[in-house]
Nucleic acid binder design. Sequence first.
DNA 1: CTGGGGAGGGGGCCC
DNA 2: TGGGCCCCCTCCCCA
Length: 420
Amino acid sequence: MEISSHQSHLLQQLNEQRRQDVFCDCSILVEGKVFKAHRNVLFASSGYFKMLLSQNSKETSQPTTATFQAFSPDTFTVILDFVYSGKLSLTGQNVIEVMSAASFLQMTDVISVCKTFIKSSLDISEKEKDRYFSLSDKDVNSNGIERSSFYSSGWQEEGSSPHSHLSSDQGTGIISGKSWSKKDSIKKSKHLRLSQPSEVAHYKPSKREARASDSSSHISQSEEQAQIDADMDSTPVGYPYGPGSDVTSRSFPDDLPRMRFKCPYCTHVVKRKADLKRHLRCHTGERPYPCQACGKRFSRLDHLSSHFRTIHQACKLICRKCKRHVTDLTGQVVQEGTRRYRLCNECLAEVGIDSLPIDLEAEQHLMSPSDGDKDSRWHLSEDENRSYVEIVEDGSADLVIQQVDDSEEEDEKEIKPNIR
DNA sequence: CTGGGGAGGGGGCCC
DNA sequence: TGGGCCCCCTCCCCA
């Protein structure tokens, strides 16, 4: 007959003895902090201690002391707690160091748990989705249901952690069983560079982007390709998104289809694929629309049109000098290089410029080539087109500040990735 | 140094 | 789906 609770009870007793420094025959010194433990427990748990204690086995009467500088006391606290409880208090912040320490101490189980933790963290959006569908908010908060294993409890809501018993009574400080709140997860994901649902809260590449981010719910998966994220707004009411991040999700009724296209480079989410395509150009630096008049390149056709009308067509019926409204009768178009603007007759006389009537209509083709020439209308050479492809492929590269030279000489039409 | 205005650029959304 | 418009923000130049 086997009493299943015996093992856990025994471990619990050993843990109590450790805390009370009863029968402890081993001292571990980690960066000046002394940890008391039992040699036989360490021997059974760690390959490193097995080796160490085997060598010292002849001196069993003497207390063994081990000193470590490779990891912090907090990290060793996590390790030791695991040894004595079977529970590993992993967080996004400590998992790397814990895994490193476990590697050093040859604790394969801990290593594999850390790996799983990291993997699940990287895949958190999928996990979160699973949670959306499997758990109501109430379930999560009140029952503290875990995803699968104790070490994953860090993803739970505050107060639902099964590790809470470890946090306060061991006097070990930082490492505790405290689960992540969303706020915590932000900081920790930043530290570990793991994707978190609330990552947007601290990702602010620009004010504009932040504005967009604030108005949409999103799950950050920077490694992902752009994809339809139809589940983006499937968040049940009350799911703890960060403050301000649930505006969009609550602005759509649950029964409406909600297609979302998520930018693979940032947190921006758009409704239409075309908008995503347009948005991606701000990351790739692609500028497929060169102005035929000055050579300046634009990422969008409407911007080119606006530029051309404003700069080269003098469409604004405003005198550049006195800002008064002018018409073809009360003013003239002045050409200054490729730039054109209007001056009223008074200002014209004042500056002594003899303007020549310019047939704007006749030069319209500069901006608007025929529709039948759509693909070649911007006169992109094959090399240029190829460079765009390369840019997209290089889009996964690290941050590169765009250095596109928009000078009129067009010496450097090479467009560099502008991943932000 | 500062404020105003122009131009560029990004997002939303309509057609 | 692309074109285009509107709005807003930022940057830069200039007075």
